[in-house]
C-alpha cells in the first residue's frame, strides 16, 4: 500500500472536513467534493498494488477490478449530489441573498424562554 496515496487520502479528508464545517454552502460543496475524492482514492488504494489491466486472458499481476467498480459508482453518486447541492445553494441565494446555513428558528425561540415565561407566548 502506497504511503503517498494514504497521505493524499488524509490530506483530502482533513481539508474537506474543515470546509464542511463552514457556514457557507459553497464552501461546504467544495468540502464534499474533496471528501468524495478522498473516498475514491481510499477505495482504489484498498484494492492493493497496481498491476496489469484486468482483461480476460492476461496473466501476471492484475489490478483488482472490484474496488474500481465501487469507486466508479461512488463518483457518479457524488457527481449527482454536488449538482443537487449547487441547486440548493442557488435557491438559498435567490431567497436570502447569501448561501449561509441559517439557525433553527424554533430552537432560537425556545432558547429565549425564561423559566417563569409561558413558552407559548414568546414570539419568534
Amino acid at each position: 500500500m502506497s504511503v503517498a496515496l494514504l497521505l493524499t487520502v488524509g490530506g483530502l479528508t482533513a481539508t474537506g472536513m474543515y470546509l464542511v464545517t463552514s457556514r457557507s454552502l459553497s464552501r461546504i460543496i467544495l468540502g464534499f467534493s474533496l471528501l468524495g475524492h478522498a473516498a475514491v482514492v481510499a477505495l482504489v488504494t484498498a484494492g492493493g498494488p497496481a498491476g496489469e489491466a484486468p482483461i480476460a486472458g492476461r496473466d501476471g499481476a492484475l489490478t483488482n477490478p472490484v474496488p474500481q467498480a465501487l469507486a466508479l459508482t461512488a463518483i457518479v453518486i457524488s457527481f449527482g449530489l454536488t449538482l443537487f447541492l449547487l441547486a440548493l445553494a442557488g435557491r438559498q441565494q435567490q431567497l436570502s441573498g447569501d448561501d449561509l446555513v441559517e439557525d433553527d428558528l424554533e430552537d432560537q425561540r425556545i432558547a429565549r424562554v425564561r423559566p417563569d415565561d409561558d413558552p407559548a407566548e414568546v414570539e419568534t
Partner: peptide
Amino acid sequence: RGQIRSGMTYVVMNLLASTLFLLGLAVVYA
C-alpha cells in the same frame, strides 16, 4: 425558505454520513 433552511442541515448531515460510509467501505475492503 423554511424548507431550504432545514433541508440544508438535513442534506449536509446525511451527505457527511454517506461520505464516511464510503471511506468506511474502503477500510473494510482493505
